[in-house]
Each structure stands twice: as C-alpha cells, then as structure tokens.
Design a protein around this nucleic acid. Sequence first.
DNA 1: TAAACTTGTGAAAACGTTTTAGAAGTTTTT
DNA 2: AAAAACTTCTAAAACGTTTTCACAAGTTTA
Lengths: 337, 337
Amino acid sequence: MASLKDIANECGVSVATVSKVLNGHKEISGTTAQRVMATAKELGYMPNSAARALKTNRTYNLGVLFVDDTKSGLTHEYFSTVLDSFKVEAEKNGYDITFINHNIGSRNATYLEHCRYRCVDGVMIACVNFFDPQVIELVHSDIPVVTIDYTFDNHISVISDNVSGMQDLVQYVYSMGHRRVAFIHGENTSVTASRLTSYYKTCMELGISPPDDYVQAALYHDTRVTARCTKALISLPEPPTCILFPDDYSYIGGANVLREAGLRVPEDISVAGYDGIHILQALSPRLTTLKQDTDSLGRIAAQKLVELIEYPKITLPGTTIVKGSLLEGDTIMRIGE
Amino acid sequence: MASLKDIANECGVSVATVSKVLNGHKEISGTTAQRVMATAKELGYMPNSAARALKTNRTYNLGVLFVDDTKSGLTHEYFSTVLDSFKVEAEKNGYDITFINHNIGSRNATYLEHCRYRCVDGVMIACVNFFDPQVIELVHSDIPVVTIDYTFDNHISVISDNVSGMQDLVQYVYSMGHRRVAFIHGENTSVTASRLTSYYKTCMELGISPPDDYVQAALYHDTRVTARCTKALISLPEPPTCILFPDDYSYIGGANVLREAGLRVPEDISVAGYDGIHILQALSPRLTTLKQDTDSLGRIAAQKLVELIEYPKITLPGTTIVKGSLLEGDTIMRIGE
DNA sequence: TAAACTTGTGAAAACGTTTTAGAAGTTTTT
DNA sequence: AAAAACTTCTAAAACGTTTTCACAAGTTTA
C-alpha cells in the first residue's frame, strides 16, 4: 500500500506537504497540490485509518451495542430495521459501524473497555437491558452515547412515542365502536410502562374502564404466552370485543387461538398489533397496528450521535420523541348501535 | 487512558518489558511479570487497537459486505440470521465486525478501497450481486474472502445445499401422494438455478414430468408477483395439487390468493415454502418448508475466514455445503389411492 | 579460569499519520 | 532600502504499540 512517504518521494516534497494537500489545507501552492494529487491517484493511495486514528484520536467508527447474549437484536425485525437506518445515516456522514461486545481477543472485557479498545467515537445503545451495570458504566463514561427507547438523565435519547401510539390505537378502536378493549402487554420495561399507562389514561378519558382481567401480562415476541392470555380473555364471562396485542409477532399466537376457538377476525373479534412489521401487512386480513417509525428512529439516533461527537459543546442533552402511525388494516370491525 | 509507558514508569521498567509481559512472552521473570500485570490492572490499562494495528498490520476486524443500496440484507430474515451467527462465531475468535460500504468520509470509494482503509483482516460477502465489478475486484484482491451462497473459483465459500434441499422437498411431497407439483421460483441467481435443476431432476427420477406452465418465474421475498403466479396456477385446466413457493415470505402472497379463491390449505391444495423463517412456524397451519441452516452457514463462514487469515498457507480453497432440513408442517395433505 | 551459553532487560526503530514551529523566499509596506 | 507581512514549504515530534538487537549478569561447560 502506498503511503504518504511514497507520494512524497515520488514528488520530491515532504510528507507534511503531501498530508496537507490531501487534507485540503490551503497553504500549498496550486502546482504542487496538482502534482501531489495526481501521484496519489496514480499510486492508488488510501489513507491508513489506524495511523490516522492513532494520531487524531478519531476513528470515524461508531459502536453499536445490541443485546449480545443468545440471540441478538439482529434477528428482531424492529431492531434490525432501526439498525439498518442507523447504518445508512452513519455511513452518509462518513462513519462506519462496529458492534460492541465483551470480547477483546480471547479475554473478557466490559462494554466500556471494548469501546476504548476500538476507540469508537461514540456509541448507539438499543435493545439491551438498561439496568445492566456495564451498560450504565458505558453511559456514564466520557464516550458520547445515544440510547434508543430508554432515556438516561442528562443524556441524548431517541424514543418511539408509545404514549401517543397507544392513545391513537385506543381512540381508533373506540371510534369503531369498541368499548370492551383488552390489552395484552409485554414484559416490564419502560416501553411497556408507557403503553400501559397510556392505555389506562386513554380509556379513562373516553369514559371506559377496563376490568382488571382485561389487562394481561405476556411477553414481547412470544407467541406461546400470548396464546395463553388470548385464551383467558375469550373465556371470560364477558369477553372483550377487541384485543390489543403486545406486538405484531406475538399476535400470531393469539390468531391461532382465535381460529381454533372458531372466532373469525374481525367478524367475531377485533384485534390490533404494534410495530407494523412487514409480513403482517402482507398477510390477509391485514393487521391493524401501530407502525413504529423505525426509519426515523435509526436516522435521528445517528444524526444526534454525530452531532454530539462533532459539536460536543453545543449539543444539548434531550430526548427526541418519534411518533408512529396507525396502519388501518382489516382486523378492526365497526360495531355498535 | 493508561498506556504502556504509564505502566513502565510506574513499575520502573521499560516499555518493551511491559509489552512483552502483556503479550505473554516467556522471557520476562516471574516477579517482574507479576508487578507489571498488577499495575496494568490497577491503571485500567487497555491496549490501543489502532496503535497495534499500525504496527502489526492486523486489526482483528472482519469486514462484512451485504447489499448496501436501498434496503440492506439486515432486514431480510435469512441474511440477518446468517449474519448473527457469523458475528457470534467471529467474536468468539476475538474478531469484531465492521460493515463495508462505499464511503470513506465524504468521498466515494470502492469496496476494496474501503477494506484497505479499514485494514480489515478478511471479508465475508453475502447477499450482494456477485457480478458487480467491485465485488469481483475485492474477491480477487489479496484480502482473504469467504463468500456465502456463491462460489468463486479457487476461493472459499459456504453454500446452502439447494440441490438436496429441493430434492428432499419434492421427494417428500411425492411420498405424500402428490404427482402434480408446481414450482414458483425466484429471480435468476445461482441459488435459483440449483433449485430449479434439482426440481426437474428429482421429478424425472420419480417419473413425473411437470408441464411447462407448472413452473413459474417470480421473485424472492415478493408477495405480489407470487400472488400472480399462484393465480395462474390455480386457473390452469389441470391445476397442481401442490405448489412449492420461492420462499416462506413470498408464500404469504400465494396464501392470500388461495384463501380468496376459497381453497383451503391443505385440504384443497398443498403448499410448501423454503427458508424456515420463524413466524411461519408460529402461524397455523404450520408451513411445511425447507429450513436452511443459517446457524451453520454463518458459523462456518466465520470459522473458514478466521482459518484463512491465521493459516493462509495451509488453508485450501473450497466449498462447504450446508444441508438444510425438512420442516414437516401441516400444509402438505396426504392424497391418492 | 576462560569460553560459551542463558536469562532478563532495555534502547531504539518502525508502522503512517497529523501538526507545530519555523525557515526560506517573495511580496508589500514604510 | 529596510522592515514587515505573507506564501510555501519542511523538519521533527508525537500518537501507542511491537520487535529486533544488544548488553549485562549469571550459569554452565571445557
């Protein structure tokens, strides 16, 4: 690989001159600059990112921290689409991305250590256990961090608007005439808390008060538990006319139960999901759901992180809330008087 | 960040000594080694990968090249699961992964240039257009490369066994009594070629010869075109009793058509997919499909790449063929005399 | 007792950059 | 004509490692 020195020799100038030309410093004469650029091209010069990083302490590498035990977020459509748009935006800004884990060579390392080892300029954190001490340590280090779907005080985060999302969903099913609206929710996270609170609040505002057994605790992305909850709901003396599922995927578990029970969707029972994943919009009847704007989530996270890295002094901590949008499918039946 | 020099000063030894201790060279006395290790830990020493890379020309970074226009392979379940297992295995071996694209800073670069810039030790290539000149350039460079689902002569590749996969599928539906087996295939790639050839060959061996209009050209992952093909098939004077779809996802397009036509699966018509993606195993009726072993594909690709990097002299080019497995779901009806 | 190893250590060079301070030459100002 | 200011360039240091070679001291062999 051709280096600055090779170009310098070839052109009969110093390494410093070549460096300056290639970095666009204005103090080198036009003729020299021309000559240097030409030889650089001729020699197929590529800067060496390691050398540059060593000198400047900037790698133009962003760390991405996803869960890394068992199955990673990669296999989860919501997160993989967020990651995808994060990647696109990061690359547009000249940054590459590297996954953070806890291996350095054969040795075990904390996330923070791994970030330091790789000298990442910043880290995006999503889809992890935000109470993990290693995550907390990383967040409170001097490395620029942006989190998705969780906010650390005095830091930058991007979160999907679960409050308005749930509100839209409940208001919509209400407007379709539903008064007995059940909610199967996911595991105990801040996301779930937002949705659950919003569900209760919106119901109250609309003057309906769901009985306790209309609210069932399940897990995200788990068809089995959701199936069980669905069964419980339809066996109630006064079953709901509409069920809101933890997410689109787990709805599949419920759908099977409904079919087995001889209940048609939406004629006999209405349902809605959450996420807006692709395949359920292809499947008929098209699932009514709240599509999270994964595209914006990833893109904004990347923008914020780059901003924080490049203008640390003038970047304020804060949370960007990204609204989702209601996808009106065919699974909510209009009912009522 | 503490450096070797800090440790050296603290211990009153030279930088060289510290380096040797930390790299486990045997020539340093036990007592010194102990002391150095203790101070290293105390100071929270982390090696600097950039400095190390600069000196050794090894980054312990693997490039991953996925399609990077519009939507990346990240959002495609088959590839994202392959990537996931690749990542896990790479990390187990002490390598991190970095996505290859064609940006270097704000400048446009070829894939090869990007790899050189980042000094990756090797590259895994999957889910790209293998006829892209930039991909070919990269493959034929001096950078170690492993490809997935495509073989370059005299290089290392890992491919899913589409021949035996298709054979298993056809033999299975035959054994269930089907003689009129249609095949909707994906776009023109080497994967499709294998499956198509295997379909014809297996049919012939079983003594059935599908008429031309039983073979329909569609696209992978596209429900619309698949829907059209499905419609065509069921409108034939003598429609098939079983349809093999390009992949599980595109089957959804067909499923909708079948339902609208009043055909029940599997009572009125049998179907099978390809891939074994998660959600279709949750949905009832469970789709009969050929599950590709994405776990092995990614893992073996990582192993081979690491081997090629670490033992270039004794690593032979060649192709590893990874068999899939038939997932017997509920969408193939037993028929016949 | 000298010669030949061993063992533990360090000095120094090298990897490819960026950057600072300043030299040399040229132009402008006084 | 001298001083000041600008332009163009370079030498050298630095970033944090790894590695080669040499040296000293101790140990064995002849």
